[in-house]
Simulated assay, not measured.
Amino acid sequence: MRGASGRFRQGRNKMKITSYLLAAGLALGLAAPAAGQVSSISTPPQGSVWNTMASVMAGQARESSNMRMVVQPYGGNAQMMQALNEGIAEFSLNDVNDVISAFEGSGEYSAPMPNLRAVARINPFPVGLYVKENSGMTSVSDLAGKSVPAGWDAFTIARSHITAILAAGGLTWDDVKQVPVPELIRGSDDMASGRVDSAFFAVGGPKVAEVDASVGGVRFLTVEANDETLAKIQAVRPAFYFSEVAPAPVRVGVKEPMMFVTWDNTLVAGAHVPDEQVEAFLSVIFDNAEAIGNAYPPLKALNLETAYKSYPGLEYHPGAVAFFEERGVKQSVSE
């Protein structure tokens, strides 16, 4: 009976989420037949890196093609992915590890989302924990006994990412004070207000620049990038790796060349999206890669030759396959 009750609650919760997504889509005119030519990109809240990237891509699509694209923010990754799976949104940007988990129904996902399809590898995505400049902390190991944002009920992807970052600093959750935060933007706001000592964000995130200006400076904490810590972060998510990031105006908080826990950021589509719609969006992205990169520097990493990368257990959308074949791009193997 307990199992049956659990399945009932899970089904009821899924219905609630689906109803919420459908209502959000209808409110924006995205799920109605009259809006059939509109493509939406599901993202986290405004101020997040994915939301900014999606806004740049959507803007370029509107400028250089007849595509009508809008950006649709959601509270977290589960809602983003379910919007694709339920046919409410057309595209999304996400960590490839999370896409695989959602597709399989593993990790934080209690049920598979079989309608998710890979479209393209967009760029490497370094993430870290950052603190106020006047905190005196410079490395993740300095967080021992300090507070770190935890919980992440509305942005569950952060749990595994922070676990990996702590591991790369020689720490576990038991070594720090856990302060519950619901999602990405709130986590940074809580650090700025002093409720928590550190915050989690991607390098180049507009929110990091906002906090930097409000508190008189921030800095990302360094990690130990070696074979031992690589094994630790890959035990959390096998597609994690380390990459070096150099200081640049857009990379607020990066004080010197630093190593970061990194993953591949991918463009994803729902299986319901027509092939020609996927091909059209990919054409916009890669035919205008220079303009997109100039609009948002992290997207300067867009590279057609490395965009068609295989990932374990994840299928590419037929429209993407056709696009890459037409451009003569061979699929590379994920390491």
Rank of each mutant, 00 (worst) to 15 (best):
W263E: 14
G313S: 12
E276F: 03
V148H: 06
S39T: 02
S141I: 04
G151S: 11
L282Q: 01
R9Y: 13
N288E: 07
I88E: 06
Y308H: 07
G270F: 01
A301T: 08
L314H: 06
L143R: 03
A164R: 01
V211C: 08
L184D: 13
D264E: 08
G29Q: 05
L299D: 02
R251F: 11
F220L: 10
Q37G: 13
K300L: 13
S65W: 04
G3W: 13
V176T: 00
K177M: 03
T266V: 13
S310G: 12
F323Y: 10
D212N: 10
G76Y: 09
R237H: 13
A225T: 00
A89Q: 01
G105I: 05
I41R: 12
F324D: 00
E305K: 15
V333C: 00
L143S: 02
G6C: 11
D197F: 05
V211L: 03
N226V: 01
R62Y: 05
A192T: 00
R2H: 10
N51M: 06
A164P: 01
Q234R: 14
T306H: 12
G293L: 10
I157E: 07
D197Q: 04
L28Y: 12
G270K: 04
D197G: 03
L116H: 06
Y308M: 08
N94A: 13
E228Y: 01
A307P: 01
S64F: 09
E325I: 01
G293V: 04
E104R: 15
V215P: 01
E279Q: 14
Q79L: 15
R12T: 08
A4K: 10
A209W: 03
A154R: 15
F201S: 10
T43M: 09
V71W: 13
S64I: 07
V179Q: 05
W173P: 00
A202W: 07
L302W: 12
F200T: 03
R195Q: 08
R68W: 08
P274C: 00
V96G: 06
V278D: 00
R9Q: 10
A35L: 07
A24P: 02
V321K: 14
E305I: 14
Q10E: 15
E326Y: 01
L221F: 02
P180M: 05
E183R: 13
R68Q: 12
G128I: 05
D189M: 15
A111F: 10
G136Q: 06
G11A: 11
V148W: 03
K207H: 14
N97F: 13
A235H: 07
V284R: 05
Q234H: 00
N85K: 11
K300M: 10
T266K: 07
E256A: 14
P44Y: 06
F91E: 00
G3L: 11
R68I: 08
E210T: 06
E224C: 10
A199S: 09
L22C: 08
V223E: 04
L26S: 12
G204E: 08
L143F: 03
A4R: 10
T156W: 07
A24R: 09
S65H: 02
A167N: 04
E279T: 03
A291P: 00
A158C: 12
A164M: 05
S65I: 07
S39V: 03
S55C: 13
R68D: 12
S92L: 09
K300C: 15
